[in-house]
């Protein structure tokens, strides 16, 4: 296996008495889109700023592209690109000028026109940043991070505050980075964003890693209880439902949680057919990643 692009062991950081980061371990592999997920105040931005070299760590080991970000110099900065969470652009420069300004900072920049195309701003190349929509500004921001042709790109909450179509556009741009062979460290508090883009996810809460893994096995999603739900047929009381399911609270819609959905369904449908009843709205659902995310981060903040 190649060396990880980012390697963190036992990372700690305190502000006064507050421990913002309390012993984080993680690795990011070359070429992957790695999502770093957590609620506000979980320690995400602190961790990312340590990786980007903006902040000093309190303790632990951090290696980014083989160097310690605290000591890394200009050559290291040539290899990374950064999109900040709340960065605003120079309102008086056009898209092309903003990219050209940043191109001058790097020794081997990508051609400006190529980057304009990459972030889908062909029609706006001569427009000033001040007249771009929020989504277009963010894409220009991504373009400015890509102009130096970095190996590693940091994206800090790239779609916060976007409308749905702007988000989809930004996501397409980010997903396209995978094809360029870039490693992407994506910070977000949206599970759907991680789900859409990431190869692997690490969830943190209160400065600690709660869970990490691929999206499929995140938080043992496969073994978590499934939910069977349906509307209670007219004239049937909840207490009349067959044994295992009878314990569920009543109301118009019955939903119950089960670790053996096949057996539960068999029992339920057998019971319904015997009585000639229809089970309207019958559904079996697995917990979504959003559900898992919320339950994991809620547990951690108890």
């Amino acid at each position: 296996m190649p060396d990880p692009v980012i390697s963190i062991r036992g990372l700690r950081k305190s502000y006064g008495d507050i421990e913002a980061v309390r012993g984080i371990d993680l690795d990011v592999q070359p070429g992957e889109i790695f999502a770093f997920l957590g609620p506000n105040g979980a320690g995400k931005t602190t961790t990312v700023e340590i990786l980007e070299g903006y902040r000093k760590r309190g303790g632990g080991e951090v290696t980014v592209l083989g160097e310690d970000p605290e000591k890394a110099g200009r050559a290291w900065r040539e290899r990374i690109g950064i999109v900040l969470q709340s960065g605003r652009l120079d309102p008086y420069l056009t898209v092309r000028e903003s990219l050209d300004l940043y191109a001058g900072y790097y020794s081997e920049p990508r051609p400006v026109d190529e980057v304009i195309e990459l972030v889908g701003l062909e029609g706006k190349a001569e427009a000033r940043a001040s007249v771009l929509s929020g989504g277009q500004q963010r894409r220009l921001d991504v373009g400015m991070a890509l102009i130096g042709d970095p190996e590693l790109l940091f994206l800090d909450e790239p779609t916060t505050g976007f409308d749905p179509s702007a988000r989809r556009h930004a996501w397409d741009t980010i997903a396209g980075l995978r094809d360029l062979g870039k490693t992407v460290f994506l910070t977000t508090h949206y599970m759907d964003e991680a789900q859409r883009l990431a190869d692997r996810v690490t969830i943190i809460a209160r400065g600690e890693v709660v869970v990490q893994g691929t999206l499929e096995n995140l938080g043992d999603r496969e073994s978590r209880p499934a939910t069977v739900s349906f509307r209670l047929p007219d004239g049937v009381a909840a207490s009349e439902l067959p044994g295992q399911v009878a314990a569920v609270d009543g109301g118009a819609t019955v939903s119950l949680s089960t670790t053996t959905p096949v057996a539960t369904l068999n029992e339920l449908t057998g019971w319904a057919i015997e009585r000639g009843l229809d089970l309207e709205g019958l559904e079996v659902t697995r917990p979504t990643l959003e559900d898992i995310y919320l339950s994991l981060t809620a547990e951690a903040s108890e």
Binding site: G53, R74, I82, G87, R88, L89, G104, Y105
Partner: peptide, 17 residues
């Protein structure tokens, strides 16, 4: 203005001295 907009921070993230 540039500092509070985050533009100074952003340019510090580039190789420009």
């Amino acid at each position: 203005i540039a500092r509070e907009d985050g533009r100074l921070k952003r340019s510090r993230g580039t190789p420009m001295p």
